[in-house]
Write a protein that binds this DNA or RNA. Structure first.
Lengths: 155, 155
DNA sequence: GTCGTTGCAAACATTTTGCACGCAT
DNA sequence: ATGCGTGCAAAATGTTTGCAACGAC
């Protein structure tokens, strides 16, 4: 909770620095994002959650807010393979973008905060002369609980 | 060329195994994909290329063919962040899916065939109990030629 | 004749845009 | 009064689906 207040303040500051105003709609959207940090909500899902508390908001505004926050690097727009964009908070201190584990069976998406790509990025920079600024890494596979589910159903 | 003939034959066999027919439209689509293996074409781009040689084809057929080939693991559907799906041939021998380098300046997408994630996947399997079957890895950054372009324009 | 495949058009889903209005400065 | 921000509706975009017709066996 305290954390969330700090995060909100940080985002407010970023908006002001970039000459954006923190309107009630924008604040409500940011709050929903903070409250659901662990999920990977789509624009529509965010819209519906915001609308519960702030019914006076349009879908277009949510899209515009999400675009703005993505531009400010508060959010990352991520595409898994379900045809729509999802939005993911960039952790405050995190230099790198976290990784994802997508379970092909239940569709659940977990996050890995650990940076696993430090060495790999160095290889890319030296061997391919490519200046890396960011990355997207998603593993596809079977999550722990689905593995257990399968095991017990076989027995 | 010879390689392409072999690849085509292999794909034909896979279709037949799965009880699909190799219709002229499907063959034309596969040929376009083989001829542009290094690109990351969207459905529409593929459609337009196929239509040059085989005008009697509809966009829906291309979509259906791409879906079928994705299901057969001949293709991978990849999403960069431009809002549409792109299709990428899975290399014949390649056990793992190759990685991508997306240049944020010129939009070019390069491929890395080397497997850079062997160790990382092991870590994921043991530390997170996640059975990895595939992955998507894209580095965002500046490609070599854009770096050079920038250097000379500063001087 | 059956059945898989097709082209076309319509439907659909997601995202963007145009516009008139509202509100803070 | 200026200009940013808004909701709504319309448009644009990318993809899927329904359907009648075709063609191989």
């Amino acid at each position: 909770m305290e954390q969330q207040g700090l995060a909100l303040q940080r985002i407010k500051d970023q908006l002001h620095e970039a000459n954006y105003k923190l309107t009630p709609q924008r604040e409500a959207t940011v709050l929903v994002l903070l409250e659901n940090e662990k999920d990977h909500l789509s624009a529509e899902e965010i819209y519906m959650l915001v609308k519960l508390k702030t019914p006076d908001i349009g879908l277009a505004t949510v899209y515009r807010t999400l675009e703005m926050l993505t531009e400010l690097n508060v959010l990352d727009k991520v595409n898994f393979n379900d045809g729509l964009s999802r939005y993911d908070m960039r952790k405050e201190g995190a230099k790198h973008f976290h990784h994802h584990l997508l379970c092909l069976e239940c569709g659940n998406i977990d996050e890995i905060e650990e940076d696993l790509l430090g060495d790999v990025e160095k290889i890319v920079e030296t061997n391919f002369c490519f200046k890396v600024t960011d990355h997207r890494l998603t593993f596809h596979g079977i999550c722990q609980s689905c593995q257990e589910k399968n095991k017990s159903s076989v027995e």
